[in-house]
Write a protein that binds this DNA or RNA. Structure first.
Lengths: 206, 206
DNA sequence: AATTAATTTAAACAAACGTTTAATTTAAAC
DNA sequence: GTTTAAATTAAACGTTTGTTTAAATTAATT
C-alpha cells in the first residue's frame, strides 16, 4: 500500500488524537480538522474510522525484524548484544508509543472488528529472536536456565509503558521539567534500568 | 462517602464497561441498562459521567497502605518480605485491574477534568514503603546499592499489565484455555517471575 | 392517616457522532 | 482543447450522545 502525503498527514494526526483521546474519544471531524482536510476525505481514502486505525497499524509496525537481525549480526559478546537488543526495543517502542497505547487498549478487549495481525506478527518475531538468543546463551553457560523466557517481553515493554502511562507522575517525582529531559531519561536511566533488570534476571542464581 | 447497594451495582457495572470499551466507548445508557437502573439514576446519584468515574477511583483505591504495613510487620527475612510485598501488589493490582486500566489510559493524557488524587496517593505510599524497605536492606548489606528504586514499581506493575493487556496473545502462547488457568498462571508463574526479577535486580552485582 | 422526603420513571433536549451524497474543482491523458 | 479520472467540498443523513425535566411512585416521618 503506497501512501501519499495527505494520507500520511491524516494517519499521523489520527495517531496523535487516538492515543490522546482514545479511539472513541477522537472524532472523525476532530481528526479531519487537525489534519486540515475535509471530513469526507477520511472515508474517501480509508473507507471508515476502523480501517483508518488498521492502516495506522500497518504504517507503524513494519520493518522491525530487519532492525533486530541487524543488531544480532554484530556478533559481539552475549551481554553486549543483550544490551543492544533492549536499547533497540526501547527506542522503537518509544518512537511508536502512541500506536502501542492504542493497541494495548483496543487489543485487550474490543468487541470491535479490528485486525491486529501486523502487531501480533511483530510480537511473535520479537519473542522468537529473544528466545533463540537466550537459549544460545544458556548453552554457552552465559545465562542461567531457570528463567521464564515468555515473560521477558512483559518485563521489558511493561516497564517502559508503565513509565509512559504515568509520565506526569514521574515528571514531578524525578524533576523532569521539559520534554527533552524526559527523552534523555528514557534513553539513559530507563534503558539502563531495563538492561540491568534483564541481565540480572538472566545471570542471577538464587 | 457511604454507598448503598444500587450505587455499588452502578459502580461495578461502570468499571466493567469503562475498562472494556473505554470511558468514551461506554455510554451512560449502556451502563444503566447493564446495571438494571434507569438512565437518570446515574446523574441522580453521581452527578455526571465524569464524577461517576471519580467515585469508582475512591471505591477501589482505598485501604492499600494498611495491607502493605501488615505484610512488612511480619518481620521475616528481607528476601521473604520482598516476596510477600510483590505477591501482595500483584494480587491487589490484579483484583483492581479494570480500574487500573482506565486510570492508565485516562491519566496518561485526558484534556478531561478528572481527579486522580486517590490513585496518586496510593502510588506515593507504594513507593515510600518500597523505598524505606530497600534502603534498610541496603544498609544491612542484603541488597546492592546500584539500583534505581524509582523504577522498581514500573518493573513490577508494568510486567503485570503488559501481560494483562496482551492476555489474548499469552492465552494462545501459553495454552491457557479457561479463565481459571489464567488466574493460576498470574498467581504462580507471573508472580514468581516478578519476584525473581526484583530479587535479581536487588542482589545482582554486575 | 397525613405529610414530607427520597427514589424512580418515560420523555424530551440540544449537541455531536460516522457516513454518504451529489456537485464542484483540480489534475492527467489523449 | 477536450475528455476522463481523481480529488475536494458543503450539506444532509439518521443515530446516538450526556443531561435535564416534571410527573409518578415508594419510603420515612410525624
Amino acid at each position: 500500500m503506497e501512501l501519499n502525503d495527505k494520507q500520511i498527514q491524516i494517519l499521523e494526526t489520527a495517531e496523535k488524537l487516538f492515543s490522546e483521546n482514545g479511539f472513541d474519544g477522537a472524532s472523525v471531524r476532530q481528526i479531519a480538522k487537525a489534519a486540515e482536510v475535509n471530513i469526507a476525505m477520511i472515508s474517501y481514502y480509508f473507507g471508515s474510522k476502523e480501517k483508518l486505525l488498521e492502516s495506522l497499524f500497518l504504517y507503524r509496525m513494519s520493518d522491525f525484524k530487519m532492525q533486530l537481525e541487524s543488531v544480532i549480526s554484530k556478533n559481539t559478546s552475549y551481554i553486549e548484544t543483550l544490551d543492544a537488543i533492549i536499547a533497540l526495543i526501547v527506542k522503537r517502542v518509544h518512537r511508536n508509543r502512541r500506536t502501542h497505547k492504542i493497541i494495548n487498549f483496543e487489543y485487550s478487549n474490543s468487541c470491535r472488528q479490528i485486525d491486529f495481525e501486523s502487531y501480533l506478527e511483530q510480537k511473535k518475531e520479537n519473542l522468537k529472536v529473544i528466545e533463540t538468543f537466550v537459549k544460545n546463551g544458556q548453552k554457552e553457560g552465559v545465562f542461567i536456565k531457570n528463567v521464564n523466557i515468555n515473560l521477558l517481553t512483559p518485563t521489558i515493554l511493561g516497564t517502559y509503558f508503565h513509565f509512559y502511562y504515568n509520565k506526569k507522575y514521574y515528571k514531578t517525582l524525578l524533576n523532569l521539567e521539559d520534554d527533552n529531559s524526559i527523552e534523555q531519561y528514557v534513553h539513559n536511566e530507563l534503558t539502563h534500568h531495563i538492561q540491568n533488570t534483564v541481565k540480572a534476571l538472566l545471570t542471577y542464581d538464587k
